[in-house]
Design a protein around this nucleic acid. Structure first.
Lengths: 101, 101
DNA sequence: TTGATTGTTCGATGACAATCGAACAATTGA
DNA sequence: TCAATTGTTCGATTGTCATCGAACAATCAA
């Protein structure tokens, strides 16, 4: 369904890009919802106050930054946090972000 | 010299605003230079490839986000990292950002 | 007092980013 | 096969942000 589904290698994840990706209220909310549930969730399952197409946009930004992984299954897009990648590349960063009130 | 020099209380520092502030190459560079030296540095001492006025802009963004403190001394602006505030509010965040290669 | 230094403010500009709706594509169930 | 579901793509719009130069303000040294 998507034209291409590129995920950066763990090694290639850029701090600046990650911070930029997380510095948006909609995307931060998405990441928190992913962290709250465990494992994957579908794109549609994620509740944010924007249109379908805008949601697609935000998922792409997060994916290209290396924050989430997107896997296609039928007509659904399964989303998950790239915890291991982020923890390996920027130890403590994700924890700090998620544990912030 | 400045119209107002508002710093948010530690308690009022917003994660999203901090992440947004750090998600810019010029500002991330400023923060790293501040962390490298210890204590304060003057505005002009900070080396970034932008004009004076743009530098002022970035210092304001960082200050309003609660990332840096600005103190006036003569004609100089003394800049410092708000380490304690950030560590108290978002434990581990600054360390994670600074220790990232 | 004059000039140099240091930084801020203002207004304009250009680039990028968030947003939407409409049209499309792919899968799945009836 | 048909319709429903799920998400993507496209084009347009809107708004925000980084950037600059010029003018200004404040301090300090000579």
């Amino acid at each position: 369904m998507p034209k291409s589904l590129l995920h950066p290698d763990s090694d290639a994840i850029q701090l600046e890009q990650v911070l930029h990706a997380l510095g948006d209220p909609v995307r931060l909310s998405i990441v928190r919802q992913l962290a709250a549930g465990d494992g994957e969730m579908t794109c549609g399952c994620c509740s944010v106050p924007v249109s379908k197409s805008t949601k697609t946009h935000h998922f792409r930004v997060l994916r290209e930054a290396g924050v989430i992984r997107v896997r296609l299954e039928g007509t659904s897009a399964m989303i998950s946090l790239r915890r291991e990648s982020l923890d390996a590349r920027f130890p403590g960063l994700l924890d700090a972000v998620l544990s912030a009130g």
